[in-house]
């Protein structure tokens, strides 16, 4: 077994030598998570908006269900989708199990509650007069909606980063739904889990460094974005 310092040196060498396998894993991770978050954002935003601005029967129940989903472990999401997508499952005919699409579905299921709950909180933080002022100044519902989104942009950006951070680093659902197939469904967390179980830490550390750099970059971007918040012309 390599020492920690040897593993770290090897990890950096792997990263900077442009190791094809490593960068392929990184690419798969980003592609899957990016697609998942892109698909999840619009319905999550609409849900957050509806929970904030519309009064309909079952609204409180919906908020409670969404809050509950926030704390569901990734493996449970993976298990549920596995049952649905497995050959005997109701969606078995789609033959999606152990594909990137299945991983995307799992990550959508994981990111949606975060986006909806944090989006709801962000929109609740916007003064209700924002919507009314937009409407009374002649904005149609769509423009007023985009105005409110703009007013809540810092909170919504935080929701986006939190959701992306969760799905790119989650291992349970990706392992169960993707199957950790090399060159196809192996992503950063499943690769780290595999390499660690083999006692080979170099690649795991290299991928861990990528996740750390990613977390730092996303937070730095958010800080920079918030720092430039006022004024906007």
């Amino acid at each position: 077994m390599e020492s920690l310092s040897e593993s770290t040196v090897n990890a950096l060498a792997l990263l900077f030598s442009g190791n094809a396998e490593l960068w392929e894993i990184i690419g798969i991770s980003f592609r899957v998570s990016f697609i998942a978050i892109t698909v999840a954002v619009p319905p999550a935003l609409m849900t957050a908006f509806a929970l904030t601005y519309l009064h309909f029967p079952g609204r409180r129940l919906l908020i409670s269900i969404n809050s509950t989903l926030l704390s569901v472990p990734a493996v449970v999401v993976g298990l549920t989708l596995y049952i649905l997508l497995s050959r005997q499952g109701p969606l078995g005919e789609w033959k999606l199990l152990f594909t990137q699409t299945a991983m995307v579905l799992g990550q959508i299921a994981l990111s949606f509650p975060i986006l909806a709950a944090m989006g709801h909180a962000a929109l609740q933080g916007v003064d209700r007069r924002a919507w009314e002022t937009a409407r009374t100044l002649g904005a149609g519902p769509l423009r007023a909606f985009s105005t409110v989104i703009r007013e809540a942009r810092f909170g919504l950006m935080a929701a986006l980063l939190a959701a992306f951070g969760r799905i790119i680093a989650e291992v349970g659902a990706s392992m169960m739904l993707g199957g950790n197939i090399l060159h196809y469904t192996r992503n950063i967390p499943t690769a780290i889990a595999l390499e660690t179980s083999k006692g080979e830490f170099s690649q795991g550390i290299a991928l861990g460094i990528v996740l750390l750099v990613l977390a730092f970059t996303l937070n730095a971007l958010l800080q920079n974005f918030q720092g430039r918040g006022h004024p906007v012309s």
Partner: peptide, 26 residues
């Protein structure tokens, strides 16, 4: 009514942005 009237709140709401941005909105 939304087309023909404009309602001014007791404490007018200002959008996040400059005075110019707020005027341009109208």
């Amino acid at each position: 009514l939304l087309e023909q009237t404009l309602y001014l709140h007791q404490q007018p709401y200002m959008f996040d942005g400059t005075v110019r941005y707020n005027l341009a909105y109208a």
